[in-house]
Design a protein around this nucleic acid. Structure first.
Lengths: 256, 256
DNA sequence: CTTATTAAAGTACTAATTACTTATATTAGA
DNA sequence: TCTAATATAAGTAATTAGTACTTTAATAAG
């Protein structure tokens, strides 16, 4: 094998797209951190870390999750997305990025962690054309002016196409979207953001988010017929709410 | 970002699964090299190289192709497969492997290249269960014994499950098979081994190889109906052969 | 007990897939 | 040149899967 002196050994970065689901708003969430240092200081970015000597990339990706949300979670699923290697993807340095995705079964509070000024869940929404946006709502309570006793939402919007995200992270997210959409009909691991089991409506909500259409646009009965082979009935929801209780399903995991 | 001293910077290896198609035997081919040095000296392996400072991984993968087959080819397609990072995948050292696949439109003669004692095209065949084997036929002409003026085939067979391939290359190949099979119904780039255009029968031959079934088991008429949206008619074959001439198709490339 | 609500279950229609048959374009040989 | 053999295109009927829509069932609230 050719073994040239490797003059500039690149940084090996693990980038993890951490997905979750907000059960109050029924919206998909992506974890972003505000970078503390250069390059791209103050930019929102996907969580990243350097790989350590004794760990595999998968372990490093999980370490990122633990760092941001603590060790309380036991139930998560991580899979590899792709590796990004273009030599101009980081300014002034050579950095490979091994990108992963983690699907969290809940939406825990966040810690900024090392190298980050801030960390937040951003609401993910896609358009029918395959574009997406990430929005972070910060609630502000005003004091005694015209908006007194009201609240308003301050929106930070990160749209693909503008370079609001650090590095090539908008591109990485686009690849992630495409991968998830492609797998929706044979291995919809994204549904793990719903936890161990889920109702068909919850599943349709996630699907609709990626197609950029309202949940209503996916018929429940037909969705069941076409996706039943992917799901396994595990009971009925015990949530006390108006209307007939929904059945619960889990993923009938397909081996890769 | 946390930046611990990276004590043991791992080797960054590019591994390329180079596919082609033998038009004489109508069989899929995979390029393997016999390793010259440790680890795994004398073992058959997928072609590998170290990434260089100024190139991206994609470029390194293409460099491997050029090294094995020369610069004569202009028409090839390379895509990323996955990255393999387990810390025990190479004995006594830490080596990441960024795995790629290249689909060559012909089956050119090979050069061993740096670090290799030998290089050969191995015939790929899969079973219905998803297993596969790689076989290399070396033609021997005997001299004046009982087999005089006859030839026989000496088979070197590399079966998955036995560790005949270096490193985790049998596993990498298994991942490759699965990926190709998954994409067969929406982005069958593997058909690029057939060149710019191909007949439906040739396409069915490639599909059949991955399903481990005979070509006859795939009905031409039905195959056309179900895959027509992936292909674009580009004319009729000019090859002089018995029977009605087949139409030629090319891939109607779907953007990823 | 009734109504509103939610989701499951069913139904009729349409599109896609499958198994099979027929038609067509070519070469080889009488 | 005519016929047989061959290879592939093209067509057909039956089945299966997918879609739009309707009905039934289970629950909470009043």
């Amino acid at each position: 094998m050719d073994n040239p002196a490797i003059l500039e050994q690149p940084y090996i970065t693990i980038t993890n797209i951490i997905w979750s689901f907000d059960r109050e708003t029924n919206q998909l969430q992506v974890l972003l951190v505000k970078r503390a240092s250069n390059p791209y200081a103050d930019y929102w970015a996907l969580p990243e870390t350097f790989m350590r000597a004794q760990e595999s990339a998968d372990e490093a990706a999980l370490r990122l999750v633990k760092e941001k949300i603590g060790l309380t979670l036991s139930n998560y699923h991580t899979e590899q997305l792709a590796t990004f290697t273009h030599n101009d993807r980081a300014p002034g340095e050579r950095a490979l990025s091994l990108a992963y995705m983690t699907f969290l079964p809940e939406m825990p509070p966040l810690k900024a962690g090392y190298g980050a000024l801030d960390a937040h869940w951003f609401t993910f929404s896609a358009t029918e054309a395959g574009q997406f946006s990430l929005t972070y709502r910060q609630l502000h309570f005003l004091t005694a002016t015209s908006h007194s006793q009201h609240s308003y939402y301050k929106h930070f919007e990160i749209a693909r196409g503008r370079d609001y995200l650090a590095f090539d992270h908008d591109w990485i997210l686009k690849v992630a979207c495409q991968r998830i959409k492609n797998k929706l009909n044979y291995q919809p691991n994204i549904l793990l953001v719903l936890g161990h089991d889920f109702t068909l409506k919850e599943a349709r909500t996630v699907y609709a988010a990626f197609f950029g259409i309202p949940v209503k646009a996916i018929d429940n009965s037909n969705f069941k017929k076409t996706h039943q082979h992917l799901f396994k009935e595990v009971g009925t929801t015990t949530r006390r709410q108006i209307g007939r209780p929904a059945k619960l399903y889990k993923l009938a995991q397909i081996e890769e």
